[in-house]
Design a protein around this nucleic acid. Structure first.
Lengths: 156, 156
DNA sequence: TCCATCAGTTTGAAAATCAAACCCTCCTTT
DNA sequence: AAAGGAGGGTTTGATTTTCAAACTGATGGA
């Protein structure tokens, strides 16, 4: 008998509560590229400075970024991804691949990523156990939260 | 001599312009689970009905969802992912895996996905060419847009 | 001394979000 | 026939966010 409107418990929603606000993932993009200074972020992302400051605080609080001084006198700061932040990079790469595929012609892609194997990175999500690419038809979802089915809240 | 503030051209930003608004990826989660009806979406996502209607229009316009009648008389509709929409599923799965890893204890994960290989899905992003897992240190970014370097706008 | 850089904060106006109520069509029950 | 009820939204008015631009404050250079 909790609330009248509780959404499906879900790690996607939980993750988006931390990084789903406007600009947050672009901040992560920039810090993963090595651009962790405030003015760089403002320029490269195009976000209002106050919003950016709010996002940075939130990402630091969430343990996704750290703030370190790269100079005392004058005090100057730089944001860097934590391990948890770096582990969000696959989300960025997957989004980028999708945007490249669906939003751009092949010869007008804004950025190309090169992989250490020497080729352009073509990312594929795979199952770590069997190694196969993850396809929609091969998945079955099992809600674990009591009172929830794959369709929605159980009973009524 | 365009604008004074143009952000980095980037497929991540382009993709997020379509699916980065609040609730959009949760809509996609539900339609991928097979829950495409308006009231299901409202219940399972917990979004205001008007916002949801706006998001659905936008996602249909973007070619990520389709709206189909599952009943004439009374007219009733259902949203389904297009091919492009389905291709965003890896983004959701990767976000979910991150949330599971960083936001929950192993035994309180809200949902478990089973893969056709018989095991619980543990997704890994890999390079399609060499098959290796994608690690941050193995990547090199090459901006293609004129006037842009990995650090930011070229020159000044 | 005057100007510039960096890392933000402040301000006030414009836009988006929210919960709740409402609407319309059809269907079922009484 | 009347009264619900479900589905798929729209409308309303109050609350939050976002935004661009201006400002701050410390430091360093010309």
């Amino acid at each position: 008998m909790a609330a009248m409107k509780d959404p499906r418990p879900c790690s996607i929603a939980d993750a988006l509560a931390l990084v789903g606000e406007k600009y947050s993932l672009l901040v992560l993009r920039e810090v993963c590229l090595g651009n962790g200074r405030f003015d760089q972020l403002v320029r490269n992302i195009g976000a209002p400075r106050d919003i950016l400051a709010t996002r940075l605080r939130r990402l630091v609080d969430a343990g996704i970024l750290t703030k370190r001084a790269y100079s005392e006198r004058p005090q100057r700061f730089e944001y860097r991804p934590t391990q948890a932040g770096l582990e969000l990079e696959p989300v960025l790469i997957t989004l980028m691949a999708w945007g490249d595929r669906h939003l751009h012609a092949d010869d007008e892609r804004p950025m190309v990523i090169e992989h250490a194997c020497g080729n352009e990175l073509l990312p594929v999500l795979t199952c770590a156990v069997c190694g196969d690419p993850v396809r929609h038809e091969d998945l079955t979802s099992h809600p674990q939260a009591p009172g929830w089915t794959v369709r929605g809240p159980a009973a009524a």
